[in-house]
Design a protein around this nucleic acid. Structure first.
Lengths: 254, 254
DNA sequence: CGTAGACTTGACCTGCGTCAACGTGTGTGG
DNA sequence: CCACACACGTTGACGCAGGTCAAGTCTACG
């Protein structure tokens, strides 16, 4: 099997952007058992309030959202997950209270049993460490979302998220001025805690100001500098450590 | 040294509520080197945007808030940390983009060098696992905050946080109808993303409805059932696993 | 070529923010 | 032991960002 056509290669790539893993460790991850599921847009596949999850969900393609909901059924998307993400890796270690997962667009998921993930983490401490670090990146993003939703106005919030996704689609390494993003305005509204109507108006503002264009399927950034300024976006919390000596490895090799 | 008067005993207690640790592992945690710091209310001790943190901060007493801020200086508190919490354990594995930490009240911190934490995690994989799981609890709380701030009205938000803190002060095991909470209304406002004025009005509503009383120093819950209902609070995401067989241990005992 | 999901726009409404004044408690120095 | 300063809390009057409601348009696709 070649390096690039393996299902989980994107996951390994993601992990090794921040963690040092030996070839053996990488291959052990690639050997994880998976179960492929195809989902249509708007299909929930983990329900909010599910007692206990038994699999983690790797996104092979598409777009998924983690969400919570209020008693009236209003949704708040708490994370976007893109291809390469293990959407609920954290559930392997704490399978309760994870919130729901929904396919925001046609997506294919590779389910990985928690038992296999646990076995791997037990056998290779450095892999456990990489998993932990990966979860902490999600947590850092989440922290930014709280600030975003809590203390910024509509235009700023949206600009911030467009910047975040640009870096993330760029493999946490580069700014993409043009990236595929199959969220609807309704879904974006649920992510930034606004109504679809107000999201629409704010997007129009960003467009007419020449900052960015959002449509179902793609985002184009026309002026990164201004967009980042409007969105109060500083990528420090997000980018991968490019210098190899900063890709920490706590656990010895051998 | 007796079991209960050790500085870090509260931390071990917190970890063992959800993770299985051998006596040796527990003692290794207790043996972690610490540096004590006393802080007055409103003192920041980790600044938002600090390049790289080198210590984690254990709360021995007091109250601390993690926060982010907007360019205008407005703050959003993203987490309350109470005695027993290692406020930024996650920074041991990912020391960037953590946000700031501020003492919300007079508090004493025990700083633990990341190097020591890493060495411990490297030597005892089960401890690394417990750390990871502990971080994931914080992440679960954070997710709830996004929903809270994003999609709930003022009264509901506040009720939700009062419920959350009740369980947490109860050691994640029991509901405390009366607990010490030294946040001001201003600080509470920064946590629920409202103004101090509106927090004041909402607290008054909760008080006159006979649900709960908040003052600088203590919260009293007069009607847990109704408060939880108003706050849309379901403790499932928060409580410790009481059944011992559910306190997972991924990594074998040697 | 009809239907449904996504997007757009306008008119009006409201929960919360803003501003400003006043109360209240508590520690501190004269 | 007073006073007075400062942090915290409370209340009222008014404004506005964003919500709500409603009526479209546009596009993809069967």
């Amino acid at each position: 099997m070649s390096r690039s056509d393996h299902d989980l290669q994107l996951f390994v790539d993601r992990l090794t952007a921040r963690s040092v893993l030996t070839v053996e460790e990488q291959q052990a991850i690639l050997a994880l058992p998976t179960h492929r599921t195809e989902l249509r847009a708007k299909q929930d596949f983990v329900h909010d309030g599910d007692e206990e999850v038994t699999h983690s969900s790797f996104i092979a393609s598409g777009l998924v959202g983690r969400f919570g909901q209020t008693v009236t059924g209003a949704r708040q998307i708490t994370a976007f997950h893109i291809p390469g993400d293990m959407a609920d890796l954290h559930s392997a270690v704490r399978p309760v209270g994870v919130g729901g997962l929904t396919a925001l667009y046609d997506t294919t998921i590779l389910h990985v049993p928690h038992a296999a993930i646990r076995r791997l983490a037990a056998h290779y401490p450095a892999v456990a460490e990489a998993f932990w670090r990966d979860c902490m990146l999600d947590a850092a993003i989440l922290m930014q979302w709280v600030v975003n939703v809590g203390r910024r106005d509509a235009r700023t919030r949206i600009a911030h998220i467009l910047c975040e996704m640009s870096i993330r689609f760029g493999g946490d390494r580069q700014i993409l001025l043009d990236y595929p993003f199959f969220a609807t305005q309704d879904q974006l509204a649920d992510a930034v805690a606004l109504t679809n109507v107000h999201v629409n108006r704010s997007l129009k503002a960003l467009r007419t100001e020449g900052l960015a264009t959002f449509r179902h399927g793609a985002v184009e950034i026309h002026d990164w500098k201004k967009l980042a300024e409007v969105g109060e976006f500083d990528s420090a919390y997000l980018v991968a450590d490019t210098a190899p000596e900063r890709q920490k490895r706590l656990i010895g090799t051998a």
